[in-house]
Design a protein around this nucleic acid. Sequence first.
DNA 1: AATGAATGAGACTTCATTCAT
DNA 2: TATGAATGAAGTCTCATTCAT
Lengths: 225, 225, 225, 225
Amino acid sequence: MSSSKPAKKVKTRIKDHELIDQRRRQIAEGAMKVFVAKGYHMATVREIAEAAGMTMGSMYNYVRSKEDIIFFVYEHITHNLREEMKRAIEGITDPKERLRAALRHNLEAVEKHSDAIMFMYQSSGCLDRDSMHVVLGRETEYIKMFEELLRQSLGEQDYDEFRLRLAADILAYLPVIITLRRWSLNRRFKSTEEVMEGIMQFTMHGLDFFSLLAQPSGVAIPEKE
Amino acid sequence: MSSSKPAKKVKTRIKDHELIDQRRRQIAEGAMKVFVAKGYHMATVREIAEAAGMTMGSMYNYVRSKEDIIFFVYEHITHNLREEMKRAIEGITDPKERLRAALRHNLEAVEKHSDAIMFMYQSSGCLDRDSMHVVLGRETEYIKMFEELLRQSLGEQDYDEFRLRLAADILAYLPVIITLRRWSLNRRFKSTEEVMEGIMQFTMHGLDFFSLLAQPSGVAIPEKE
Amino acid sequence: MSSSKPAKKVKTRIKDHELIDQRRRQIAEGAMKVFVAKGYHMATVREIAEAAGMTMGSMYNYVRSKEDIIFFVYEHITHNLREEMKRAIEGITDPKERLRAALRHNLEAVEKHSDAIMFMYQSSGCLDRDSMHVVLGRETEYIKMFEELLRQSLGEQDYDEFRLRLAADILAYLPVIITLRRWSLNRRFKSTEEVMEGIMQFTMHGLDFFSLLAQPSGVAIPEKE
Amino acid sequence: MSSSKPAKKVKTRIKDHELIDQRRRQIAEGAMKVFVAKGYHMATVREIAEAAGMTMGSMYNYVRSKEDIIFFVYEHITHNLREEMKRAIEGITDPKERLRAALRHNLEAVEKHSDAIMFMYQSSGCLDRDSMHVVLGRETEYIKMFEELLRQSLGEQDYDEFRLRLAADILAYLPVIITLRRWSLNRRFKSTEEVMEGIMQFTMHGLDFFSLLAQPSGVAIPEKE
DNA sequence: AATGAATGAGACTTCATTCAT
DNA sequence: TATGAATGAAGTCTCATTCAT
């Protein structure tokens, strides 16, 4: 999980470091709302500034360009997702329980932050090279966390490294279906809760037969809910 | 699989219907290249016209707006995906083989059309309401095809309707990981082929334990490859 | 005097070459008026377009940037100055008469195009590197013309190459005092005509004693006018 | 040489008069560097403040506007030029020697302060009306100094008042060729020194035959150097 | 049916100046 | 007196769309 310090410094004229952090948080939060509503390109910096509760000129004291803004939004979202995940599994000591909690939390987080996640998937093309690099690093961090949880779950048991890695990728990715197919799922299913439960089961079975978990029964899921 | 007729008519002042179709195909193909390269908003209609091999003025004889163009591109891509899928499973009579072929083809199609699929996921927000509606319909069609394949695979066997639906959704969605996490996967794995194989296995195991397939052994996958 | 072809091509989307020339002339003329009145930086492209008799959007079909505009203005002015000079001395065969006519014309041209020349001296810092290079080339052309006239005036006579060159530079430069010190001169003298006459005499005497002209008496100037 | 007191008061809310002078000198010196490097319009007040070694807010205690700054720079430069000229001729009693020394110094000053002089010629359009008036006054002072030197050189001799005035103007102006045609001269001549010598000779000869100096031979210049 | 020039609304960004501390 | 954050007006340039030929 390691370092969370921004791997990319954005220059500014402002001296007060606390103020910088505070304003940039304002900006990220305001911008996210606007980006979610209209998309990166249709959002004007004026709207963003307004949503952030400051004037355009003021905002440009904390940001060099619109591209900086989108980068801050990505940083903001991924930071929050990481922190929430940490909180969701902290205190749980049993490895399998930790994994299970992480999976469950991931589903809930995707559901809760659906807008933000949709935004991230839709707007990755708007990031400049450097920002993209940083953001991909964040993603990798997140996936490695699942790898680690899987490893701890397996304990002493033998496992295939490739499968473990791929499984981690899938675990992180699959819940995103809730966001990316939101309309489709809403059309075809009654509640998101049942979809989440179904995904949970599909995932666990996939893992299980994948021989990644020692005691499938340990994560037993009722065959019919 | 039902109707493939455009559920949305786009007006034009041109009379020659064959010409309309030809030009619109040109436009869709040219536009797709440009959209893939630069994204919808960064692509100018001038570039699109050039890529389509006609002048801007001419293009506006077949299109009312830039939004029409993106709609045509979506139609073009989804049409091709459907047709290729049809061809991939036609002639296969054994239901389980059909399902398996469809899954495999889906993986390969996602890989082959990675650019186009990335474009579709990133640009859905650029569609106007009507177009979005049509496109969602296409998606539903595609998923229903998987439902049908699953049903045929189950034959007389009992199954849970909810699980079947959800499974269809997941089957269609999971392979898209190849596109949406392309950079991440390329970074973490050697070849796309091994990733595809891994996803295939994960999917089959998920389905299997999900009790959706009568004879899991029928789709048995070597525990270690 | 040689080549007068633009040493710098400015790209445009417009196909009609005649139209390009015409519009660019319009732009140069309009822009010159605005630049003269407000200076390069204070002139807005909107004002320039208006003065050129077209819309801003239209103007940008013939120009890529404001810097292109200033370059066109320089080209326009220097082109006109060259052409007028050619006409002023064409048909005069006696070398000393040609030189004298050139000097006289230069004075009159500086007076006539005072605004334009003031603009050129004030705005050279606004030219980009390439344009500056081209413009310096134009200046050199102009000076070399004086060199040539001096050489022909000297005929077979010996002369010092360095002095001749420097004299040419001074001949071209000195009249510009009319522009660069316009306010000062207007304040201190009655008419520009008398100032021009005075400069002419100062110049001729400078040249004369400079041993650049064979028969000083040939260009004898009444000691008192 | 008369008054050198600023003919234009610039208001400030600061009380300490010594501090005002010191800060304004700082500002003028810092600003000159920036103006020379980037031109008046491209220089930001922030850069100027930085170059002046103070903050923007602080600078506005001594200046009401950016226009005030450019005025101070003009004052600073012309003040220095005047002082240097005074020093260059002080102690020389022979009138012709004084004139000669002034001419020589002027050439050297133009060369030495080439950047500043270029700036002054390029930026005169940026001065507001009042400042321009003051600056023109400074220029007149400078020219009148040459008039005076010429008069003293002529002693009792008769002279034409008009010619004398014009000569003074030319004497002050001609050396500026070193600055205004710097690139051109550098391209065409080996050293600035030889150019300065040449200009000196041209000037003297111009004056001489102009009948402004009693004994031309007194300023005799070897026909070939 | 095709061409390509014209249009003008609107986007991002900069910067001189002010003001609370 | 000094600081530095806030402001908003204004500037350059792009581009989807139209229209005369």
